[in-house]
């Protein structure tokens, strides 16, 4: 019997092998996906957003020698609302991370985050510092990590190609940004600055820890802000 299950099965229809190439039996998504992904992968617009040393290499990547325009990525948008990609190019500090999360929340979906360099991925050489966030992935979902301190422009392009490959894997049918049940999904809570950086998702944990280590002076603990010790 020449009829076999080729994998090209749609519903109950079983298509003979010799016809599989001639008959359209896939879902619409299968046809649309390549077109959809091709157009998206070749027009990834990053946010004009430089943090530290890696930003210099990012600019070098965008300028004449490495020329991101070859990938359709040269349009650095100053506003997050027009961009698809956020290149976290440099050390993320506690003072800056609320802004970064807010910017990310403002980006329209589908949106991607590329963590460029050691600092953005995991704190880098400054990890031990008191004002440094040990990896932006603690606050945002990161799609591609590019190691290096700093990654050379070619390494960054390599990361961008990896991102393109990731986009190629996505399907319009299963894309989470089109069939959202919860309208607040994808909104990340903006961390706030207290005596240290406060991740609002960790409030319960902070309360538990506070119960474990009570302050010596209970009056001080309930104060909104610790007093600055200058005699005045």
């Amino acid at each position: 019997m020449a009829v076999a299950n080729t994998g090209a099965v749609n519903g109950d229809v079983v298509v003979p092998d010799e016809l599989a190439n001639n008959v359209f039996i896939g879902t619409i998504a299968k046809v649309l996906d390549p077109i959809y992904n091709w157009s998206r992968r070749n027009s990834i617009w990053p946010v004009t957003f430089g943090l530290a040393c890696c930003a210099i290499e990012m600019i070098c990547t965008a300028s004449s020698r490495y020329d991101l325009a070859r990938f359709g990525m040269e349009v650095f948008r100053a506003t997050p609302r027009q961009s698809d990609l956020m290149i976290i190019s440099g050390t993320v500090t506690k003072k800056m991370v609320p802004t970064i999360v807010r910017l990310y929340n403002q980006m329209p979906e589908p949106r991607y985050v590329l963590s460029m360099g050691a600092c953005a991925s995991g704190g880098g050489p400054f990890k031990e510092g008191y004002n440094v966030v040990d990896g932006i992935d603690k606050f945002l979902p990161v799609d591609v990590y590019v190691p290096g301190c700093p990654p050379t422009p070619q390494a960054l392009i390599n990361g961008l190609i990896a991102l393109q490959e990731k986009i190629d894997q996505q399907s319009i049918a299963t894309a989470p940004w089109y069939n959202k049940k919860d309208p607040t999904a994808g909104i990340y809570p903006v961390p706030v600055l207290g005596p240290d950086l406060v991740d609002l998702r960790q409030l319960d944990l902070i309360r538990r820890e506070a119960a474990k280590h009570p302050a010596e002076d209970p009056a001080r603990a309930t104060e909104a802000e610790p007093q600055t010790a200058g005699p005045q």
Partner: peptide, 13 residues
């Protein structure tokens, strides 16, 4: 070898 970009850092890095 600078072409180390990846999708995961929990183990690969």
């Amino acid at each position: 070898d600078y072409e180390l970009a990846g999708y995961d850092r929990s183990t690969a890095h």
